[in-house]
Amino acid sequence: MTAADAAAERDARWATLMAAAQAGDARAYETLLREATPRIRVLCRARIRDAAEVEDAVQDTLLTLHRLRHTYDPSRPFGPWLATIAARRSVDRLRRRSRGAGRESPLDDLPESAAATQPEAEQRLAARDLREAVASLPESQRTALRLAKLEDLSLAEASARSGLSVGALKVATHRALHSLRRRFGVPEEKK
């Protein structure tokens, strides 16, 4: 079997799995996502160098794929449909990164007192505690926090990317922040 034949066979299999997923078959959908993820990773890696950014783009692609699954026509090849989504999410990642880079300033530019307020080891411990605290949150709250707070997306954008409603996102973000504040003993913000 040639590489082209193998690719065509894989495409036909993914088209069938996607058609089953559109009908609500969770097992077919999970199989499809697991099989397609390495391909998505390759597509994202073609545009992004940084490994962590690639993984973020992969997850963004999966979320968009989930939200747009009703737009796929199983009579057409699955590959181009997937490739466009992966390309768009990779470009978005790069754009957001370049915008973020413009807002960041190197640590050396800060006054010495700012860097000296907390020893490096202590900062690392605090960062580790925060990472652990975020990891212990339920998945929906983690997703909401990542999209709405860490990536600074609008609620509409975060909702579009995650497939969660704006209301559900608001509740999940609020609960996530509430749990983190409680864990670190930070008083609630006054409205």
Partner: peptide, 24 residues
């Protein structure tokens, strides 16, 4: 960051039947 594996599991658990979009 959420692991990609966890995200896939979450999306698959969340999947509902969808009505296919009519042709363009």
């Amino acid at each position: 960051m959420m692991r990609t594996d966890d995200l896939i599991r979450q999306l698959a658990a969340d999947v509902q039947p969808v009505r296919r979009l009519p042709t363009p």
